[in-house]
Computed example of a mutant assay.
Amino acid sequence: MFGSLTRYSLGQYIQKHLGKYFPIGTIIINLTGALVLGILNAANLNAKFYILLCDGFLGAYTTFSTFMFDGVKLFHTDKKINAISYILITIVFGILAYMTGHKITSLFT
């Protein structure tokens, strides 16, 4: 519940201030979620904390359904270059964010 409330509130705030024509709010939410997941994954949490934070909070914080909805919406409004950019940015930088978080934590553990 807390993850979805955080996602919605933060996403609305970001979108209002940074992007009317591009789903920057969803990108930022998903990339920060990937970064934090990488950090927590490398931290070797016990199973209960992992389920609570990674599966629970981050699972609700990040959103695949909104990512798909935003991408399809861009295609349907003839913003194909924006749609392709959005999808590629989310996937490529999501992987890089996860790897960065994992690497940073691995350096300190």
Score class of each variant (00 low, 15 high):
A83Y: 02
Y86E: 10
G101M: 00
I89K: 02
Y86M: 05
Y13P: 05
T26P: 10
G3D: 09
M99W: 04
G3K: 07
I24A: 15
G56P: 12
N46I: 07
K48Y: 00
G59Y: 01
M99T: 11
I81G: 03
F57H: 00
I51T: 11
T6N: 11
F22R: 06
I14Q: 15
F2T: 06
I104G: 08
K20Y: 02
F69I: 02
Y50G: 03
K103A: 14
F49L: 13
I89W: 06
I28H: 01
G3F: 11
L18Q: 03
L96A: 12
G38A: 00
G11R: 13
K16P: 10
A97V: 06
N30Q: 02
L107E: 12
N82D: 15
F93A: 08
G59D: 05
I28L: 15
D70P: 00
I95E: 07
L53Q: 02
L45H: 08
L58A: 05
K48V: 00
G71K: 06
G94N: 12
T109N: 14
I84S: 00
Y13V: 14
I87D: 08
S85T: 14
G38F: 01
S106F: 05
I14S: 09
T32S: 15
F57N: 01
I29W: 05
N46C: 10
L18W: 15
H17C: 07
I28Q: 04
L88D: 09
L40E: 01
K80E: 04
F64W: 11
F64A: 06
F67I: 01
F22I: 10
G11T: 13
L58W: 07
M68G: 07
Y86I: 03
M99A: 12
D70K: 01
L37T: 13
I27C: 12
V36T: 02
L18P: 12
T62V: 08
I24C: 13
T63S: 10
L18H: 09
I29M: 12
A97S: 14
I81M: 07
L5E: 08
G94I: 10
L88G: 12
I14M: 11
L74A: 06
G19Q: 10
A97Y: 07
G56V: 06
F75C: 04
L58M: 09
G59L: 05
H17T: 06
Y8K: 09
Y21H: 15
G56R: 08
F57C: 01
L45I: 13
I14P: 11
S85F: 13
S9C: 15
M1L: 04
L107W: 13
S85I: 15
N44I: 02
K20A: 10
L96Y: 04
A43D: 03
S9R: 07
